[in-house]
Simulated assay, not measured.
Amino acid sequence: MTRRLPLIHKVVEEHIGPFRQEQLDLEFSNGERRHFQRLVSGGHGAVVVVPMLDDETVLLVREYAAGLHRYELGLVKGRIDAGENPLQAADRELKEEAGYGSRKLDVLRSLTLAPTYMSHQSWLVVARDLYPERLPGDEPEELEVVPWKLADLDKLMLREDFSEGRSLAALFIAREWLGSQR
């Protein structure tokens, strides 16, 4: 069933750090009116990179996660800077966080965090044909690079220090896509 999008009667904005909070006065097609809040990303989106060291091995990074106050294992990720596209941002972030560049980058799809109230999108990029190259990044310490076999994804998904949803979803999507490329 295709529904008509709700009519926006009014938007009230408030800036909160890198985000803009909007309060929406909406009217749905059945006449019901509601107020919704959403966070609008203040940037150009982000990338989540699946760096393949070889056909079976992905590179993960361990970095400090302030939200949980612990070290978290996950994929290379970061924002898309002004003037960059997702492929350029993915290659830059890969060099900054893992110390590798990529000769073959593929954008698979976008991922959202909480689309019911956030506009933020992250682009899932698979990086292959890696070569050593490091760029200075904004991390306060060098990140630990951890090779992980895709065949052992079942063990990774249950680790307490691997909890970020984008990384988990990206690995399963990339594994399926890579399998279809063989």
Rank of each mutant, 00 (worst) to 15 (best):
Q37P: 07
L39H: 12
Q121L: 15
L87Y: 05
K10T: 14
K149H: 14
H35E: 15
M118A: 15
V61I: 10
V40K: 01
G101N: 02
L150H: 06
V49L: 00
L113G: 15
G67D: 10
G31E: 03
R20L: 14
L150V: 07
Q181V: 10
L105Y: 07
E164M: 00
V50M: 09
G74W: 00
D81F: 09
N30I: 06
L7F: 11
E27P: 00
E13T: 13
R134A: 10
G137E: 08
D81N: 11
A65R: 02
H120F: 11
P132C: 03
G137P: 03
R166K: 12
E13W: 10
V76A: 02
P115L: 08
D129Q: 15
V107W: 01
L75F: 00
Y131S: 07
S119L: 05
R38H: 05
P115M: 08
G45F: 07
P136E: 13
L156Y: 01
K155H: 12
E176V: 03
L108V: 09
L26A: 08
E93S: 09
V11E: 15
V40M: 03
R159G: 08
S122M: 07
E96I: 02
L87V: 05
S119W: 03
W148H: 10
L87S: 05
L75K: 01
R20H: 13
T116C: 07
R103I: 04
E27S: 04
A65F: 12
E97A: 08
K104L: 13
E96T: 07
S102N: 05
S167A: 13
M1T: 10
F36T: 11
K155P: 03
W177I: 04
W177Q: 11
D106S: 14
P115D: 09
K149M: 11
A90C: 09
L168T: 09
G101H: 03
R70V: 01
A65I: 07
T57C: 06
Y64C: 06
I80G: 05
R4P: 02
V58S: 08
S167G: 15
D55H: 03
E139M: 14
E142G: 04
L113I: 12
E56V: 07
K95Q: 15
E13N: 13
M157I: 13
L108C: 02
E164Y: 10
L108M: 04
D55F: 04
H15K: 15
R33F: 06
R4I: 08
V50Q: 00
A98C: 08
E27D: 03
L59M: 04
L150T: 01
R166S: 08
L156G: 05
L158G: 09
A127P: 00
Y64H: 13
K149V: 10
L111K: 06
Q88S: 11
A89K: 00
K104N: 14
L26I: 03
L53A: 06
A82D: 13
H44Q: 11
R79T: 12
D91M: 04
L168I: 10
H35Y: 12
R159I: 08
Y71D: 11
G43P: 04
G17Y: 08
R175N: 10
